[in-house]
Each structure stands twice: as C-alpha cells, then as structure tokens.
C-alpha cells in the first residue's frame, strides 16, 4: 500500500468524458416584490416632506449654517478633534495590546495587574475619568520618587497635567485602552492553539511566538472592531469639555453659539463635520479590512482562479489541478 507511485495514470488514458450538450436555457419571469416598492415610495415621500419642511424652518438657521460651516475657527477645531482622536487611539492601541498580552501571560502577577486596570477603567464613566484627570494636578501637585515617609530622592512638578490638550489625550487613551485590550484579547484567543504549539516546538520563545506568529494572525480579527472604536473615539472627544478643554469641534461650536445666540445652526455645523470624518473613516476601514484578509486564504476562491501567491508558469498551465488544490484549506 505504500508504493511510491500512487497515481498510476497510463498515457493511453482518454481522460474524463467531455461535457454533454447543454440543456435549454432557463428564461423564467422573475419574482415581483410589490410591497417593497410601495414601502420605499412611502418612505421617500416622507423624507421629502421632512426635508422641505426643515429647509423652511427658521430655527435651523440655514443661513447661519452656511456662514459657519467653513469658518476658520470651526475648521481649526475640527483639526483639534481629529488630533485628539488619532493620538489617543494610537496610545490606546499600544497600551491595549500590552494589557491583552499581560492578561494572557502565564505570570499571575502580570495577569492580575492587567485585570485590575481593566476593572477600574472600564467600570467607571469616561466623563468622570476626564473630570478626574482635569484636577489630578491639584491633588498631586508634586510627584516624588523615593521610600515612603523619608526624604524623596527625586521630586518634580506634576506639570504634564497643566497642559489640557495632553491631559485630554491621556484621559481618553487610558479609558480606551481597557476596551482595546478586550478586543485584542479576543483576537489573540481566536488564533489556533496549534500555532503556538508549532512555534514552541521550533524553540521560539513566548515573546517571539506572540510577536511573529500570534499577533499578526490576530490582526484580521482585531481590525474591524478597532475601526469601530476609532469612530466611537471621534465622537467621545466631545466629552473633553469635562477637563475642561474647549478647543475641540464641539467646544468651539458651543463657544460661538454662546456669543451669537444661535445654538441650533452651530450644532448642525458640528454634526456635519463629525459625519464627514466618520464617513472618511468608514471608507478607510473598508480598505484596511480588505488588505488584512489577504493571504489568509479565507475567501480567495470567489475572486478568481489565480491565488494570491505569485503563480508559477507550471501552475498557470495547470489551472485545473490548481483549482482542485485551492479548494481545500
């Protein structure tokens, strides 16, 4: 049973029989959906009524909206919101990855530290946390290093929290890291155990296994919810008013409306900017997801017969076999 030649294909083999003549092409009348059409018409009509009505309502102050939508102060503030989002998310992802790895670590001390962190930062409202970070410099005006109840070796002003922009980033990032760590942990745990085992059997250390084998594979699971978190963060930045930081999009909009007494138009302006950014993020997320699902072989077959790897000429001339093999996984 273990002879080397397992496919005794004789050269005289005529091969499989060719396809029979095609049957009659099906030309059926497609199913109709009258209710769908009707409901769609009604909905479009309702939307039209709403838009026409809103356009004529004084309270929306469309003229004001047009005046402020490209106001220098607003676009500046939009940039601040964007910066808050990007910086705090980058920090949160890094810290979240660290926390997730700590929670999965075999070391019980490290594991408990991560658990405690997540317990606190996920268990309290982000608004309250931001208020706290806003006043932390008052509670701890001086930071010292040394043995308790002795003259400190080092002491310096807690100046970092007097910069409200930095405080906002730290506050948002520390909160978000708790959520990111759970997302990352789910991603890491989704990687097959055999991967870690194979890596260990190759004498790679735990750190190497994580870095080169497990984390790259977890990315595919981690990316979609992370995109979600970025969009969520963009909107959460409006809470930095708790610090209080008021140079972000929402803060500036409110500042202007407090002077002009036109709150509704400026809320609409802010909303338009938020929507613009989230729309751009959604498009970005779509492409990142596409990129990370490549090479994983999860859904290659539906794109065509040529696999992602550079096909050799041998394979191109042998597409029938290539397809056969590609079907397995």
């Amino acid at each position: 049973m273990s002879t080397p030649n397992r496919y005794p294909i004789s050269p005289a083999d005529p091969g499989p029989p060719g396809p029979a003549e095609d049957g009659e092409v099906i030309k059926a009348i497609p199913l109709r959906h009258p209710w769908r059409v009707l409901i769609a018409v009604v909905l479009v009509a309702m939307l039209a009524v709403f838009i026409i009505d809103a356009a004529q309502r004084k309270d929306f102050g469309w003229a004001e909206v047009g005046k402020y939508i490209f106001d220098k102060r607003i676009s500046q503030a939009a940039l601040v919101t964007l910066q808050l989002t990007v910086y705090s998310m980058v920090l949160a992802i890094a810290l979240g990855l660290l926390l997730a790895i700590m929670r999965l670590s075999p070391n019980p001390v490290v594991k408990s530290v991560a658990w405690l962190y997540i317990w606190i930062f996920r268990g309290t409202p982000v608004y309250v946390q931001l208020v706290f970070w806003g006043i932390v410099a008052l509670i701890y005006p001086v930071l010292t290093v040394g043995v308790p109840f002795m003259t400190p070796w080092l002491s310096f002003d807690n100046s970092i929290f007097t910069n409200l922009f930095v405080t906002a980033i730290i506050g948002l990032a520390l909160n978000e890291a708790a959520y990111m760590s759970e997302i990352v942990r789910a991603g890491l745990m989704s990687v097959d155990e055999g991967q870690e085992e194979a890596s260990r059997a190759l004498a790679m250390s735990w750190g190497q296994t994580m870095r080169f084998i497990v984390v790259p594979q977890a990315m595919r699971i981690i990316i979609p919810p992370t995109g979600n978190e970025v969009i969520s963060m963009l909107k959460t930045t409006s809470l930095v008013t708790a610090i209080p930081l008021s140079i972000d999009l929402y803060g500036v909009s409110r500042g202007i409306s407090a002077v002009t007494f036109t709150p509704v138009p400026l809320l609409i302006v802010a909303c338009i900017w938020y929507l613009l950014f989230t729309s751009i993020l959604m498009i970005g997320q779509h492409f990142i997801e596409k990129r990370f699902s490549r090479g994983s072989g999860q859904r290659k077959a539906d794109k065509g017969s040529v696999p992602d790897g550079p096909p050799t000429t041998a394979e191109l001339t042998n597409t029938a076999i290539g397809n056969d093999i590609g079907g397995k996984g």
Binding site: A198, L202, M204, Q208, F212, Q217, G309
Partner: peptide, 27 residues
C-alpha cells in the same frame, strides 16, 4: 528536536518559505 503535527500547523499568514526561515532567523 523537530516536530511534525497531524494538522500541519503551518503559519497561515506566511508563505512556505517564510514559514521555514522563521525559527533559524529568530532562534
């Protein structure tokens, strides 16, 4: 000590060649 598994356990995010060079490079 080399080990070969029932379910292969190749690293799916790496090409065949990259699978092979990991351990010699890292270890």
């Amino acid at each position: 000590i080399g080990m070969v598994f029932q379910r292969f356990n190749l690293f799916p995010h790496l090409t065949a060649l990259e699978n092979i060079i990991q351990a010699p490079m890292r270890v």
